[in-house]
Measured scan of single mutants.
Amino acid sequence: NQASVVANQLIPINTALTLVMMRSEVVTPVGIPADDIPRLVSMQVNRAVPLGTTLMPDMVKGYP
């Protein structure tokens, strides 16, 4: 099973992602692959992302 990117904390709308905000976890449904975490750094979320939420491609501005 492939690990996905999961919010490690509440991420407010328009926040630029940092490594501490994300963790990898095997979840269903599958979200953004954990391998993409380095690419996500400094990209902004377009909505508030609660703790434990799987990051989906449509939540991150400019992804992929």
Rank of each mutant, 00 (worst) to 15 (best):
L55G: 00
G52P: 01
D35F: 07
S24E: 12
V27F: 03
E25H: 05
T54A: 08
I11Q: 01
N8I: 06
R23T: 10
A16Y: 13
M43G: 03
G52A: 07
M22T: 00
P38G: 12
V30G: 11
V6S: 02
M22A: 02
L55W: 01
L19S: 09
L55C: 02
V49Y: 02
D36G: 06
T18G: 04
V20Y: 08
A3R: 05
S24P: 07
Y63H: 07
T28P: 02
I13E: 11
T15K: 06
A48V: 13
P38I: 06
G52Q: 03
N14R: 05
R23C: 05
M21D: 04
S42P: 01
A34M: 06
L19C: 15
M59W: 08
A16G: 12
A16H: 13
G31Q: 02
I37M: 14
V30Y: 14
L51N: 12
L40I: 08
I13F: 09
S24R: 05
P33F: 14
V27L: 04
N8Y: 04
P33A: 14
P12Y: 05
L55R: 00
L51Q: 15
M22H: 00
N1L: 15
P38E: 08
A7P: 02
I37T: 05
M59N: 04
V60I: 11
S24K: 07
P12M: 06
N1R: 03
E25T: 10
L10S: 11
Q44L: 07
E25R: 04
V20R: 06
L40M: 06
R23Y: 05
A3W: 10
S42A: 14
P38C: 08
V26Q: 08
L17M: 07
N14A: 07
M59V: 07
A48M: 13
I32H: 01
L51F: 11
V60D: 01
P64Q: 15
Y63K: 04
D58H: 11
E25K: 06
L19F: 07
D58A: 09
L10R: 08
P12H: 10
M22I: 11
P57V: 10
S24N: 12
T54M: 03
T54F: 02
M43T: 05
A34H: 09
L19R: 10
N8L: 06
I37L: 12
M43H: 15
Q9V: 08
T54L: 04
V60Q: 01
L17F: 01
Q2V: 14
Q2C: 15
